[in-house]
Amino acid sequence: TGEEYIAVGDFTAQQVGDLTFKKGEILLAIEKKPDGWWIAKDAKGNEGLVPRTYLEPYS
């Protein structure tokens, strides 16, 4: 299990392996990579890379 984050903006996948999401979606951070791209999972179970700058902790 990971930590929940809320998307603060829309993001469209730029390449294969990225995860597209919309502002307000809750994402589960699976792995926090030091380069600023995290592996996350959305509510539908889709998994991919997301930019850290689009996420804020969800409580």
Rank of each mutant, 00 (worst) to 15 (best):
G45M: 04
S59W: 12
A29N: 02
K32W: 06
T1D: 13
D35M: 04
K41S: 08
G17D: 05
D35V: 02
R52Q: 15
Y58M: 09
K33N: 12
E31G: 07
L19I: 04
Q15R: 15
T1V: 14
G2E: 11
G17E: 06
T1W: 14
K22L: 09
G17L: 04
L28Q: 09
S59L: 13
A43G: 10
L27F: 08
G17H: 06
G17M: 05
T12C: 11
K22C: 10
A40V: 15
T20A: 10
P51H: 15
A7E: 01
G45K: 03
T53E: 15
I39L: 14
Y5Q: 01
L49P: 03
E4D: 06
D10A: 07
I30A: 02
T1I: 13
A29R: 04
G17F: 06
K33F: 12
K23P: 03
D35S: 09
R52H: 15
A43M: 13
S59A: 12
K32C: 06
Q14N: 10
A29P: 06
K22R: 12
D35W: 05
P57K: 11
E25A: 11
I26N: 02
S59E: 11
N46G: 07
Q14E: 10
R52N: 14
E4I: 14
K41P: 01
V50A: 07
G17A: 05
T1H: 14
K32S: 05
V8F: 04
T20N: 08
P57G: 05
E47M: 15
D18C: 15
K22Q: 08
P51G: 05
F11Q: 02
E56H: 10
R52D: 13
G48M: 01
D42K: 01
A40Y: 04
T12K: 09
Y5H: 04
Y54V: 07
E47V: 15
E47I: 15
E3I: 11
W38H: 01
L55F: 05
D35G: 14
V16Q: 13
K41E: 05
D18P: 03
E4C: 14
G9A: 15
G2Q: 13
G17Q: 06
I26P: 02
F11I: 04
Y58N: 07
P34D: 14
D35T: 07
Q14I: 13
D42M: 00
D10L: 02
F21W: 01
G9W: 15
N46D: 08
V50H: 01
A29D: 00
V8K: 10
K32T: 06
G9N: 15
A7Y: 02
A13T: 05
Q15H: 13
G36M: 06
W38C: 04
E31T: 11
N46Y: 08
W38P: 01
L27D: 00
W37Q: 06
T53D: 15
E3Q: 12
I6G: 01
I39E: 03
L55Q: 00
A7I: 02
L28H: 09
T12R: 08
D42I: 02
A43Y: 09
E56Y: 09
L28V: 14
E4G: 07
R52T: 12
W38T: 01
A13C: 07
E47H: 10
T12Y: 13
V50K: 00
D18K: 12
I26F: 05
N46C: 08
W37G: 04
A43R: 12
K22I: 07
G9E: 15
K32F: 08
K22W: 08
A13V: 03
E4L: 15
L27G: 00
K44D: 11
P51N: 14
T20C: 06
L28Y: 13
V50T: 03
Y54P: 02
L19Q: 00
E25W: 09
W38L: 07
I30L: 12
K41I: 13
G17W: 06
I30T: 05
E25K: 00
W38G: 01
D10C: 07
G48F: 03
F21N: 00
D42F: 00
K22D: 04
Q14F: 09
V50D: 02
V16A: 13
E31K: 12
A13P: 06
V50L: 03
K22P: 02
Q15I: 09
G24M: 03
R52S: 15
A7Q: 01
F21Y: 03
L19E: 01
Y58R: 08
G36A: 04
L49F: 14
D42R: 00
E25I: 03
Q15F: 10
E3A: 10
A43S: 14
L27Y: 02
A43C: 12
E4T: 14
T20V: 04
R52E: 15
I6W: 06
A43V: 10
L55N: 01
P57S: 08
D18F: 15
K23V: 08
E31Q: 12
I6V: 10
Q14H: 09
V16W: 10
S59Q: 13
T1G: 13
I30V: 10
G9M: 15
K32L: 07
Y58W: 12
S59T: 13
T53G: 12
P57D: 05
T12G: 05
T20K: 04
L55W: 01
K23R: 11
R52Y: 15
G45Q: 04
E3P: 08
L28A: 06
T1P: 12
L28T: 13
T20I: 04
P34K: 10
Y54S: 08
K23W: 05
G48D: 02
L49Q: 09
Y54W: 09
G24P: 01
L49D: 04
F11E: 00
L19S: 01
T20F: 04
E31Y: 12
T12Q: 11
P51C: 12
K41A: 08
T1C: 12
A7M: 02
K44T: 10
W37V: 07
Q15C: 13
V16E: 14
Y58Q: 06
L55E: 02
T53K: 14
Y5E: 01
I26R: 06
G17K: 04
P34I: 10
T20H: 06
A29Y: 04
T20L: 02
D42G: 03
V50C: 06
I26Q: 03
A7C: 08
L19A: 01
A43E: 10
E56K: 12
A13F: 03
E3C: 12
F21H: 00
L55A: 00
N46H: 09
G24L: 02
A13L: 04
F21Q: 00
G48I: 03
L28G: 03
E4R: 15
I39G: 03
